[in-house]
C-alpha cells in the first residue's frame, strides 16, 4: 500500500503581515501614554503631506486624542504638487481635525537665494528642515507635541532627511514597514486615493519613492523583514530574491546606520552620557 505523503509547504517570503485592529489599539494606547500620561500634553501637531504615512498618523492621533486636539499643517513649497494639498484636505475633511496651510517657499528661498547652485538633493533637504522649524514652532505656540510620521522601511533604507523627518519626539509608525502602513491605512479608513497613489517625497518634480529607491516597497519590505532576522545575502537569494535587489537593500541599510543614531560624541570619562550614565527616556 502506498502511503500518502504530507509535504511541508514551501516558504515563500513576502512582506510582513499585520493585525491592523491589534496594532491600532496598541498605537492608540501608545500615543495616549506618551502625550497625556507621560507629558500631560493633550494636543498634537503634525505635517500632513498628502501621503499615506502622515494620513495614518493623523487618523491615529485623532483616535487617541480626539480630532479637536490634532493640528495638521500643510507646508507646500512652490514646486510641490497641487494634488498633494488636495489629498491632505481629504484627510482633514474625513477627520474634522484642525488645519492650516503655511507656504514655506519664502523661508526656503530666503536661504537658497544665497546658494543658487544647490542641487535637487540639497534643496529637498532644506525644505524638509524648514518644515521641522515650522512644526516645532507651531507646537510651542499651540502647547502641542510634534508627532513623527516616518516608517520603518524609510528609516532602514535611510530614505529621509536626517534631523528633519526623524526629529519629532514621538513616532507611532517607526516600527511598521511601508506595506504594513498601507494595510493599517485601509483598516483606519484613510481615503483610498492616498493608499493607491505612488508614494513620493514630493521634493522634486515627478519624484516617486520607488523610482528613487530602485525597488518596490513590497520587495524591499520582504527583504528587510528577513534581513533583520539575520538571514545572509546568500540565504536571501536562496529564498527567492534576486542578487540585485538583495544587494541594493543591504547596501542602503549598511550605509545608513548613522542616520538611526544620535550624533557621535567623543567619550572622555567614566560618566559619558548614554555610555556610562544610563537613564531610560521616560525616567
Amino acid at each position: 500500500m502506498t502511503l500518502p505523503i504530507v509535504e511541508a509547504p514551501a516558504v515563500i517570503p513576502g512582506p510582513p503581515g499585520i493585525d491592523a485592529a491589534v496594532t491600532t489599539e496598541w498605537l492608540t494606547a501608545f500615543l495616549r501614554d506618551e502625550l497625556l500620561v507621560r507629558r500631560e500634553i493633550p494636543r498634537a501637531v503634525l505635517g500632513l503631506s498628502g501621503g499615506v504615512d502622515s494620513a495614518v498618523t493623523a487618523f491615529l492621533c485623532a483616535r487617541a486624542l480626539g480630532p479637536e486636539n490634532v493640528y495638521a499643517f500643510r507646508m507646500p513649497y512652490k514646486t510641490s504638487q497641487p494634488s498633494s494639498l488636495a489629498d491632505a484636505q481629504l484627510v482633514v475633511d474625513a477627520l474634522q481635525i484642525n488645519t492650516r496651510t503655511i507656504d514655506i517657499t519664502a523661508a526656503v528661498d530666503g536661504y537658497l537665494q544665497l546658494e543658487p547652485s544647490a542641487d535637487a538633493r540639497r534643496r529637498g533637504n532644506v525644505m524638509a528642515r524648514i518644515r521641522m522649524v515650522v512644526l516645532f514652532d507651531q507646537s510651542a505656540k499651540l502647547g502641542a507635541l510634534p508627532i513623527g510620521t516616518g516608517n520603518k522601511t524609510e528609516r532602514l533604507l535611510g530614505y529621509f532627511t536626517w534631523h528633519a523627518d526623524d526629529t519629532p519626539p514621538v513616532n507611532p509608525l517607526g516600527d511598521l514597514f511601508k506595506t504594513q502602513v498601507w494595510a493599517l491605512a485601509q483598516y483606519l479608513g484613510v481615503p483610498k486615493r492616498l493608499i493607491d497613489k505612488a508614494p513620493t517625497a514630493d521634493l522634486e518634480a515627478d519624484q516617486t519613492d520607488e523610482g528613487d529607491l530602485g525597488i518596490t516597497y513590497a520587495r524591499a519590505d520582504a527583504i528587510l523583514a528577513e534581513l533583520l532576522l539575520g538571514y545572509s545575502d546568500s540565504q536571501l537569494i536562496e529564498r527567492g530574491f534576486s542578487a540585485r535587489e538583495v544587494s541594493l537593500v543591504r547596501a542602503r541599510v549598511d550605509a545608513t546606520h548613522w542616520k538611526r543614531h544620535l550624533p557621535t560624541t567623543a567619550m572622555l570619562s567614566n560618566t559619558a552620557i548614554n555610555e556610562f550614565y544610563l537613564r531610560p527616556v521616560d525616567f
Binding site: D19, A21, V22, T23, W26, L176, Q180
Partner: peptide
C-alpha cells in the same frame, strides 16, 4: 514588553 503584530487578535 509586547511585540509581534503579525499574529491573530493579540500580540
Amino acid at each position: 514588553p509586547g511585540r509581534g503584530i503579525e499574529g491573530d487578535r493579540e500580540l
